[in-house]
Design a protein around this nucleic acid. Structure first.
Lengths: 217, 217
DNA sequence: ATCTGCTAGATTGTCAGACAATCCTTCGTT
DNA sequence: AACGAAGGATTGTCTGACAATCTAGCAGAT
């Protein structure tokens, strides 16, 4: 067995372009509001336009790009309302997830691992995302996970747009995560939900405050 | 202005194939479990394979087809667990929607219209679907609507697979819908949620009973 | 006789090129 | 200065071809 594990979920060439573009968007190299024409992407990676088009369509499906018919795709500029809506739905889904987890008292090992990385890694933002993904992936409903994935693209975009500004310390985040895990282990669904809601809404409010500050300045 | 309203959300040729295939699947002409190869679809509609492929990919995204890498797409056979998971998540989303609607006391006119059709039309199944879509589309969160759409494809599949068996009368369905609308108009979120939950779980249980009966027989 | 390994057919995965439809901008006209 | 038309640019769509992968059937060894 030479080829391992990953059954090529991302096709070779469109997948490579997708990954590159995704990283480029999340790292702000393609600034919010800037347009990405199909031709430009094709030229940039030296492929045919339909190939580039496929990658763009996937990014659109992920919420990392937006486009109207006959117009170039744009990196979205998340408005105040977008952020509020995003975190509102995120809380809904994740609270449902931890409630299910607490019902069985099962703590996903991957969530524990992710939270350990939050403490140790230099840039904890991606591990914070990993933790929340692991939480939802650990509960039994596959469709709840799919809905969560639908939101996480834009969430990453949010985080990326303010990751330079350190709004909270890694230790604080890790502590809040640990509190949620403890509540799950204790099968205390109410406490887990409450802590998670505070954690998410806290992040949202810090984000909003930062956005307001940036706009004013 | 010659061209009206619809800004061609579904592209011309792939869109036509998508619509045909979708109808074909929902009407059971393509039986659950049967495979749809890209070549077969291409031949059936007289187009190139990549064109057929696009249509199939959209159906997969809608949940109306399933596929593994390097395998033909199949019309899914919804298991007992699938139905339970599907209706569980559907209830979660729709309850959130009616709660939001009741908060403002706003009854979506399109939902009222759809429910009128439930009474009058011969086959009320599609109008039942329309009603629930209208309910979610009427609340303010765009992302909640997107998540709902993610579920409705499979829901339609469910309904289609048992629509021949009349498990409940149109009048009963319309009455339950009306009760929900009344609760929303009265800004009674609790009652709207309760009625909706009963309505959805009732449909689920009838569906499960029908499935069990069919399997046994 | 059964199991293993290989070969062939079928199917999906991927890509490039070309033409049509649409939108935006700019220039010309009134 | 305002309106309208032409041209450029961009997306939308489709086809044909080649590469990678999987499944099934066959041959040979144990």
């Amino acid at each position: 067995m030479v080829h391992e594990a990953i059954p090529v979920l991302t096709p070779v060439l469109p997948g490579a372009i997708y990954d590159q573009l995704r990283a480029s968007i999340l790292s702000q190299q393609d600034a919010p509001g800037s347009a990405l024409t199909e031709s430009a992407v094709a030229l940039r990676f030296g492929v045919a336009r339909p190939t580039a088009r496929l990658a763009i369509e996937r990014l659109v499906a992920d919420g990392l790009l937006r486009r109207e018919p006959h117009h170039a795709a744009q990196v979205p500029v998340l408005s105040r309302d977008d952020i509020i809506d995003l975190f509102y739905n995120r809380a809904l889904i994740e609270i449902e997830a931890v409630t299910a987890l607490a019902g069985g008292g099962t703590v996903p090992p991957s969530a524990v691992r992710a939270n350990r990385n939050v403490c140790t890694a230099a840039d904890f933002a991606p591990h914070d995302i990993d933790f929340h993904r692991a939480l939802v992936a650990g509960q039994p409903s596959p469709r709840l996970s799919r809905m969560h994935e639908l939101l996480m693209g834009e969430i990453e975009l949010c985080i990326g747009q303010v990751q330079s500004a350190h709004l909270i310390s890694a230790a604080q985040v890790a502590a809040q995560h640990q509190g949620i895990l403890d509540a799950i282990a204790a099968s205390d669904a109410i406490r887990a939900s409450t802590l998670l809601r505070e954690h998410i809404l806290g992040a949202r409010d810090r984000l909003l405050a930062h956005v307001d500050r940036t706009i004013d300045g």
